[in-house]
Amino acid sequence: MDKGTPSSALPTCAISLNINGTNRVLDIHPWVTLLDLLRGPMELTGTKKGCDHGQCGACTVLIDGERVNACLKLAVSIDGAEITTIEGLGTPQDMHPMQKAFVEHDAFQCGYCTAGQICSAVGLVAEGRAHSRAEIRELMSGNLCRCGAYTNIADAIEHVLDQEGVTPLREAAE
């Protein structure tokens, strides 16, 4: 290639994604990750880049309802998928119960890992496999928090599980 060749000279692929309930048809380079697609062209910057290598969980989003690291997903490979990001869960005025619980339990400090933590926690609740404090801890270990809000995050998740009619600690004791 010559100097000054624009990126548009490279091949693109057409895909469609449903992002937070809206269908989007996109023409993208195949090397664009879901994370960079969300944060860049989609301007959904709530999803964060903390390592870009699947080592921190800050980019966790829900793909077809399952929590996944967006940084390691080539967007082209999930053509047709439904994506839910933090923006799709709730807004400051109309928060998702998990978002409310995070605020109430001060389950964050700097807030940078928070979108990933909340998406991960929503995924965890849907999976239905966390029935004790220890299970919450283990099943949230893919989301690092350098501010060290872990105990408050566990409190927030426990609160939501309780609200959903699951009483995690008692169940574990039985």
């Binding site: 910057t45 709530g46 999803t47 005025q93 978002q99 995070f102 605020v103 001060d106 964050f108």
Partner: peptide
């Protein structure tokens, strides 16, 4: 009190350095 910036942070509305631009 809960953080007054909490709702922004939990909803992805708080903008950090790399979130600006467009």
């Amino acid at each position: 009190l809960s953080r007054i910036d909490g709702p922004l942070k939990v909803s992805g509305s708080a903008k950090y350095a790399a979130d600006h631009g467009g």
